[in-house]
Design a protein around this nucleic acid. Structure first.
Lengths: 188, 188
DNA sequence: AGTGATTACTTGATGTGTCAAGTAATCGGT
DNA sequence: ACCGATTACTTGACACATCAAGTAATCACT
């Protein structure tokens, strides 16, 4: 009933009664089933950041513009495309979303008149999504507040060196998380 | 109808027709309503990472252990506490969650027999959550696979230097995102 | 001891994401 | 020209998160 196993211990317990992974001992960083204390701290902090950032972004955008961050991002990607138009599949890739999720979101945006959908002339299977003028206005109105939030909560919290370190770190993570490299944010 | 304004342009447009924020020109990093190109790339990559990591974690844990990452984290925090017991409020702080969210999750975990709830003896308003033996077994069984996922998708994608840079960056972000410093991950 | 404010939590309604399944058009052979 | 496989997307059911509101105990005063 007393304190036996904790998260930290689970993550770096030396009692590897289960030697899984049969890890090659030759890789660059130390590889094994458990995490080093420093790795564990980094991971826990990253988890906390990942848990908190969406809430901050969504709260501000919802309050000031009635948009989720994902909706904002969808509108923004469309506004960048020629003719304000993209195929659903392309839009899904640029927003790191499943086609299912995008389909639901675009339908809701269409209901609100911010986007229109129409069949793609070149491929009968495909659907195009286009930003409407209303959608563009909403986006332009939302942008300054959103950018301020990003600056205040993220960019301005870091030194310029940290910003470029973060950029490289995120690029490295994306290469693992999305091996197909289908992402909008080219990891050049 | 042609390409007028895009996400990148929205985020760093030089036409600051709206000079908001009346930014002090003296702060360390350049401060203004728009983002520099390098900042923009870093931000977009971070957004992609934040969008993708939860899916990776949830998919593996769900598949192998029938748990969400958040549920795993809740069980892990309890397993670290004395008597495997924490007040709901304390548990919410350690998991960066709202009390509402935690209440729903703990109820579901209780329905599955992984956690029990009982009134706190010292404070009639408070509720204690305690890990059950079943919950502990589920947690211990889930841990190795989860840690492997974290290693493979995150830690091993980075050099040791990047891991420590990430740790510092996340700490800096948490100081902004959680000024009250209520988090489990002490940003010492 | 009584009253208002605060704390700690729960509950129900609503919205969004995910999964599984379905539809429809196109491609790749033969 | 046909037919199976793939691609592109939609839909409906379900799970989870959030918000607003409610309950109940405790605290701070007077």
């Amino acid at each position: 009933m007393c304190q036996v196993i904790g998260y930290a211990r689970l993550m770096r317990s030396p009692s590897s009664s289960e030697a899984r992974g049969s890890s090659l001992p030759s890789e660059g960083p130390p590889t094994g089933p458990w995490l080093e204390p420093e790795q564990l701290v980094a991971w826990k902090r990253l988890v906390a950041v990942i848990e908190l950032i969406p809430g901050v972004l969504d709260a501000q955008l919802r309050r000031d513009s009635g948009l989720t961050h994902f909706e904002y991002f969808v509108l923004a990607m469309l506004s960048e495309a020629p003719e304000w138009t993209l195929r659903m599949t392309g839009l899904a890739q640029q927003t790191n979303a499943s086609l299912t999720r995008l389909s639901h979101v675009v339908r809701r945006l269409e209901d609100r008149g911010l986007v229109t959908r129409f069949p793609c002339p070149e491929d009968g299977r495909a659907t195009n999504a286009r930003l409407t003028d209303d959608g563009h206005q909403v986006l332009v109105a939302a942008a300054p507040g959103h950018v301020s939030t990003v600056r205040e909560h993220v960019i301005d919290a870091l030194t310029p060196e940290q910003v470029s370190e973060l950029s490289e770190i995120a690029a490295a993570l994306l290469r693992r998380l999305d091996p197909a490299g289908r992402l909008a944010v080219a990891v050049e």
